[in-house]
Design a protein around this nucleic acid. Sequence first.
DNA 1: TAGTGGTCTAGACCACAGA
DNA 2: CTGTGGTCTAGACCACTAT
Lengths: 236, 236
Amino acid sequence: MKNNKYQVIYQKLVSKIERHEYVAGEKLPSEHELLELFDTSRETVRKALNQLAQNGYIQKIRGKGSVVLHRDKFDFPISGLISFKELAEKMGSPWETIVHELDSVIETADLQQKLGESDLWKVVRSRKVDGESIILDKDYFIKSQVPILDHSICSNSIYDFLEKDLSLQIAFADKEVTVEEATDEDRAYLDLNGLSHVVVVKSIVHLDDASPFQYTESRHRLDKFRFVDFARRMKI
Amino acid sequence: MKNNKYQVIYQKLVSKIERHEYVAGEKLPSEHELLELFDTSRETVRKALNQLAQNGYIQKIRGKGSVVLHRDKFDFPISGLISFKELAEKMGSPWETIVHELDSVIETADLQQKLGESDLWKVVRSRKVDGESIILDKDYFIKSQVPILDHSICSNSIYDFLEKDLSLQIAFADKEVTVEEATDEDRAYLDLNGLSHVVVVKSIVHLDDASPFQYTESRHRLDKFRFVDFARRMKI
DNA sequence: TAGTGGTCTAGACCACAGA
DNA sequence: CTGTGGTCTAGACCACTAT
């Protein structure tokens, strides 16, 4: 990853936890031991440990130490900023992406207000897992940030393309989960099996300069929807 | 709150942002200015700023400064660790809690495995907002951590009681959001208006010594469910 | 009392944005 | 070039847990 000491320490500790070299329920070495182990300062060790705590790997307990937590492998959409491709591959199910629409559009009012620009790409894709079409993704990207987009990119991972080829840095996203009545479009592209509603996840994604650049509406078949979250009382 | 310098600085900055003294889209004073303003060191200022960033108040941009983000007031279940009472009061709608069941139970297998203890309180409550019963909460608490519980506590906020009277410190929670077919119990306690499914939020809540102490199943009427999330790529 | 994590300091050097 | 945030250090003192 990066050359930062604390990121490296974080990654090493994550690996050890995921390979069960540090066992859930047991304690990590103390901060003092870790700073000697990695030949660094205490604050640097603490940055790594705080990141572990935030991502649900450990719980720090004053006077005692850092306890490794039990976390299921599948419980890791690390707070939702993961792409469908990454998720599908993690789950190990056979999947497929079908591109239904890829257009250059001029959107008005609502969307323009959200993204601050009206010249957009519109991409409509459905996701097939185990032979069933269960997710309908409608994405809008700002053209000034994403000048090129083609069918092949959309069939693979747009995020890979954005981060690797365009080196755009995604920083954060606002999400909203609700349930809505299924539309004709939902019924056309999804195998709804007569279900009358869909779960809708709307999000606005921002780059690291805080500018919004994508609006997404992800429409899921009810019975296949699952959202996992790790919530922590704020500290540091 | 606490006497920590960085917590105090954080709170002061949050207040100013929420009162729009620092305007969304504009920049906060630089770290150097803030450390002089609060007569402290840079690292301490940075702790406060990192907390602001994590909670979605600002975005820090290297070489430029810290930009105040636009956040709706209602978008703040600060990552979900908020009680129904707090949420309802924030929304300003008239609400009511009805206690249907308050029992001391011995649970088996599944629940015991999740909580590591079988001697539990079971509490079933429904939540009425604007005259309609839209949420059914089923809570299980570990009796060794919560020795006393009565009807009056359950009608108000159990969390207030836990934190203020028992001084238990809630640290984090694992959550899972899914959609399930409505049960007879749902139909009995909720005004479902013929809807066939409910949104189910299951969570296991842990104390600050990492021990699980509560399991909750919160069952929501589809059309009234809304879950807001702020997801950030991990840093620090 | 010894060992743990929590807070705070004063300083250093680096990477990036902008004039 | 100056000013911004990002990383790192070595040390101090505090609060809590255990023995």
